[in-house]
Design a protein around this nucleic acid. Structure first.
Length: 925
RNA sequence: GCCGAUGUGGCGAAAUGGCAGACGCAACGGACUUAAAAUCCGUUUGAGUGAAAACUCAGUGUGGGUUCGAGUCCCGCCAUCGGCACCA
């Protein structure tokens, strides 16, 4: 490192103040009832997304959000709030375990080392965390309560009548295990052989694991599931009033994917197709039917065929002997495809006819039943009605295999009645079967276009998928789409042929992992049935293991600990562990009361920190029934967009369960959410080892100091934006801080820093007052709005103004120090102390100083400069009295020489005068 | 393909519908210095006119529109980034 002289002695004073803060417990927030707790102060809970302590340590991207929250935390303290500003470690997780597998090093040891390094880095930046609240999700004192919460979920069910989670004891049906919020199911899961575990859908990206990028295959396994789908509606509704970025809300809504529509029952036709020699296989069973889900019940008359998912268990019973080989072959083909291939092949539709037929309940037409892999078993009923005229996917299949296409919705032409039988450009109706000559085409393997495509000259066929007016549909003829949907749904319900229903894309949460480094389930198995272990046995600690490797069979590594597995003569332990999300689902609650050994969080403490902040009135009335949304929760939560869906959705889900069960005082955990943008390397690329552009905060701090590091992180640009790092930019901000330092200090002959001789206990001049109060106003508003870059810019203006002043008023500098304190806490603390030793009139500690209030009268001027425009172009600027009225301004403008010059020979049409801003004279020939 | 965000000097950026480019970086010029570093002061969107002070025109991805007035509001298009991706 260069031996350049430090522009101010940050290397001495930063460690000094960090030690002082620790010794004085300056940022410790007492809980209600604790000594020193002041109930008169409002609470403010400001939270970071806690880090996973990886082996690489922090780079400069991590502390961006942390710096923002730290500024807010320090600002709120100066404003007299009780501030909860904690940090901890998301310590369970795959990387530590992968490392253990490679090296044999126990994950607990690597995790402890990584935490130590992270902690040292964070402390060096000077964050004002309450370190007495530090937690780790891998600490038994913590995960004991993670396990306890799992048991709460396990012991609950979702009561559809009340719309909330209730103890399983309130369930009166026959099968409690079938309704629990935590349940076991054998489901096709994403099995990752390399990682030796199953993964949630969300952890699989393009058919590969999110961690490591290993291939993932589908495989049926017995797994723990959490019934998050029961909360789908509330997770959408209660999102609405939160102060979150609109884009994140949208992301969550899309993820949940609500669609309203109807289920329709199609009766399977008896007997074979008259033209076919195939035997009907099992389709003679009377009353046999297939239910589909559709969002467009109004297109029922246009359903000319049905499609089942290849995995649908009904397929076997529908398939005729003749079609059986083709169906079996297709099913095998689909099963062999990975998710990636399935998506890749999505460009062209494939499918095969089962030989079976069903009756369209509206038109009574016999329609063929196909299977195709574009129909997913996991959504809706795993079966659809094919309406090729009004659905692009259905149209593709129909065109390819020559299935009938029947138009039943006419685009509504504005201002005129729908054209009956609107003909031109419409596809010719066809009858099934016409594809029989193309037997070889049945898998869609033919690379050449199907003959049908060639048979349609001109425009490619297009499905009309918008709303319009029903046609060719006797029951709803001429009705606009929304009414047609209602009418046909009612008609179906009357006849028991269907009902209105809602579907969600959201699936239940696959909650178990076949890993070692996670929370063991507090569950045992006896006679093939699961039971909870008593709460008194928590925490359930994982057994010590020498070999962490996955077994490869899908059996978790915990199976190796034979003694541990054997719970009693008749019972064995559950071998799965929880996913990494578990701890982060509720860590923010534990921060409120991290050492409570009797409860996951004390009741009163939770009510204080997570409840409705004083002065904020809850939205809506408490008297309303059901799950009325309340304000409250974490007041500000800052983190990356990568958690927009998963972490935030899972945490909201757990929070709602705990709220319903009466353990919490609010229905939502995070009132205000902000995403910080990514910080790129100096080369404009994402920071990564691969590019060698990673910047370690400690290196920056060594050269420029922690205060400069913090200020630069905030000065780079808007918090939410992606932006590249710049070392010369850091230098510029460091220069600014050095100028602040030299406002107060100067070097004597001996090279020591002493108070500047220009300091004086004098009144600020009027011009200086204006800058002071403009700065107070802007910095205050900008911190509230998290616009830290412009707050710093304003303080730079302040410093530029006072640098050139002959005498520097002490009071003005003190004001600046308080405003700057949240950004550069070390230096401002030092200067504050130094000033206090020489000048009286202020408390000894900067933290005891109230936040300054700006006085509007100092911002007022006697005169303002206004612009004089002609036809919108500025022609002159003049000083006018601040109180000048529009009429006076108009007169001034019209008398102005430059204005007259540009209006000469023209007629003045209009004069727009805006006091304190400008006058615009509109003139033409 | 669908959804969302973003496009402003050489660079990071700023701007309740009212003087585009605050603040900072880089660059250039000056002061201090034997010299350099540091520091302080100044210049810096482009094109044109002028000896100069000044002045004129153009300018916020692109094409339209609303308005006395648009970086800002509306419509179309282009580019970059992010998310979703057969969800019936």
């Amino acid at each position: 490192m260069s031996e350049r002289r430090k522009s101010y002695p940050f290397d001495l004073l930063e460690p000094k103040w960090q030690t002082i803060w620790e010794e004085r417990r300056s940022f410790h927030a007492p809980n209600p009832g604790d000594p020193g707790f002041d109930p008169a102060r409002p609470k403010y809970y400001v939270l970071d997304m806690f880090p996973y302590p990886s082996g690489a340590g922090l780079h400069v991207g991590h502390p961006e959000g942390y710096t923002a929250t730290d500024i807010v935390a320090r600002y709120k303290r100066l404003r007299g709030c009780n501030v909860l500003h904690p940090i901890g470690w998301d310590a369970f997780g795959l990387p530590a375990e992968q490392y253990a597998i490679k090296t044999g090093q126990h994950p607990e040891i690597t995790t402890r080392e990584n935490i130590a390094r992270f902690k040292m880095q964070l402390k060096r930046i000077g964050f004002s965390y309450d370190w007495e609240r530090e937690i780790s999700t891998a600490d038994p004192d913590f995960y004991r309560w993670t396990q306890w919460i799992f048991l709460q979920i396990y012991h609950s069910w979702f009561n559809p009548k009340t719309g909330r989670a209730e103890p399983i004891s309130t369930y009166t049906g026959e099968d409690p295990d079938g309704v629990r919020l935590a349940y076991v199911a054998t489901v096709p899961v994403n099995w990752c052989p390399e990682l030796g575990t199953v993964l949630a859908n969300e952890e699989v990206i393009d058919g590969k694991s999110e961690v490591g990028g290993f291939p993932v295959v589908k495989r049926p396994m017995r797994q723990w599931m959490l019934r998050i789908t029961a909360f789908a509606e509330r997770l959408i509704d209660e999102l609405e009033p939160l102060a979150w970025p609109a884009g994140i809300k949208l992301l969550q809504r899309n993820w949940i994917g609500k669609s309203e529509g109807a289920e329709v029952k199609f009766v399977v036709a008896g007997g074979a197709d008259p033209g076919s020699s195939g035997e009907p296989a099992g389709v003679n069973a009377p009353g046999y039917s297939i239910t589909v889900f559709t969002t467009r019940p109004d297109t029922l008359y246009g359903a000319t065929y049905m499609v089942l998912a290849p995995e649908n268990p009904l397929v076997d019973r529908l398939t005729t002997n003749e079609q059986r080989p083709a169906v079996a072959e297709y099913q095998a083909l689909v099963a062999a495809k990975s998710d990636l291939e399935r998506t890749d092949l999505a460009k062209e539709k494939t499918g095969v006819f089962t030989g079976g037929f069903a009756i369209n309940p509206a038109s009574n037409e016999r329609i063929p039943i196909w299977i195709a892999d574009y129909v997913l078993m996991g959504y809706g009923t795993g079966a659809i009605m094919g309406v090729p005229a009004h659905d692009e996917r259905d149209l593709e299949l129909a065109v390819k295999f020559g299935l009938a296409i029947k138009e039943v919705v006419a685009p509504a032409t504005p201002g005129s009645a729908p054209v009956p039988g609107a003909g031109e450009g419409v596809l010719p109706s066809r009858t099934f079967p016409s594809a029989s000559p193309d037997e070889k085409d049945r898998f869609g393997e033919m690379p050449k276009p199907a003959p049908e495509t060639g048979a349609l000259p001109g425009n490619p066929p297009q499905a009309f998928t918008g709303d319009g007016v029903a046609m060719n549909s006797p029951l709803i003829e001429g009705l606009p789409t929304p009414e047609a949907k209602q009418r046909i749904t009612a008609w179906l319900e009357e006849r028991g042929l269907g009902r209105g229903t809602i579907n969600y894309k959201l699936r239940d949460w696959l909650f178990s992992r076949q890993r070692y480094w996670g929370e063991p389930f507090p569950i045992i198995w006896r006679d093939g049935k699961h039971e909870a272990i008593p709460e008194s046995e928590l925490p359930l600690v994982p057994p010590p293991l020498d070999d962490f490797k996955p077994t490869g069979t899908g059996e978790p590594p915990l199976a190796r600990a034979r003694d541990w597995v054997r719970y009693s003569e008749t019972a064995t332990r559950e071998l799965n562990t929880m996913p990494q999300w578990a701890g982060s689902c509720w860590y923010y609650l534990r921060f409120c009361d991290p050492r409570n050994s009797g409860r996951f969080v004390g009741k009163e403490t939770e009510r204080y920190w997570m409840g409705v902040a004083a002065g904020v009135s809850p939205a809506g009335s408490d008297a309303s029934p059901g799950v009325q949304q309340k304000a409250g929760g974490v007041d500000l939560y800052v983190g990356g967009t990568e958690h927009a869906v998963l972490h935030l959705l899972y945490a909201r889900f757990w929070h709602k369960v705990l709220f319903d069960l009466g353990h919490l005082s609010t229905a939502e955990p995070f009132q205000r959410l902000v995403n910080q943008g990514i910080i790129l390397g100096e080369d404009g690329r994402k920071m990564s080892k691969r590019w060698g552009n990673v910047i370690d905060p400690l290196d920056v701090i060594a050269e420029y100091g922690a205060d400069a590091f913090r200020c630069y992180e905030m000065f780079m640009g808007p918090l939410e934006q992606m932006k590249p790092w710049s070392m010369t930019g850091v230098e510029g901000v460091a220069r600014f801080l050095a100028r602040v330092w030299r406002l107060v200090m100067e070097e004597n002959q001996a090279g020591e820093w002493v108070l500047s001789a220009t300091l004086a206990e004098v009144e600020a001049t009027r011009a200086q007052q204006k800058v002071i109060h403009a700065t107070i106003k802007k910095v205050t508003a900008d911190i509230e709005a998290l616009s830290f870059n412009t707050a710093i810019a304003q303080m730079m203006i302040f410093v530029n103004t006072f640098t050139t002043a002959d005498a520097r008023p002490v009071s003005a500098l003190r004001t600046l120090l308080v405003l700057l304190n949240p950004f550069a806490p070390h230096m401002t603390s030092e200067l504050w102390e130094t000033l206090g030793n020489r000048f009286s009139g202020a408390p000894n500690e900067i933290t005891e100083q109230p936040w300054p209030e700006y006085q509007p009268e100092f911002l007022l001027e006697d005169e303002v400069e206004i612009a004089l425009q002609v036809n919108g172009k500025v022609r002159d600027r003049v000083m006018v009295p601040i109180a000048a009225t529009s009429v006076e301004l108009e007169a001034i403008a019209l008398a102005n020489e430059r204005v007259r010059e540009f209006t000469a020979g023209k007629t003045i049409r209009k004069v727009v005068a805006i006091p304190k801003k400008l006058v615009n004279v509109v003139a033409n020939k």
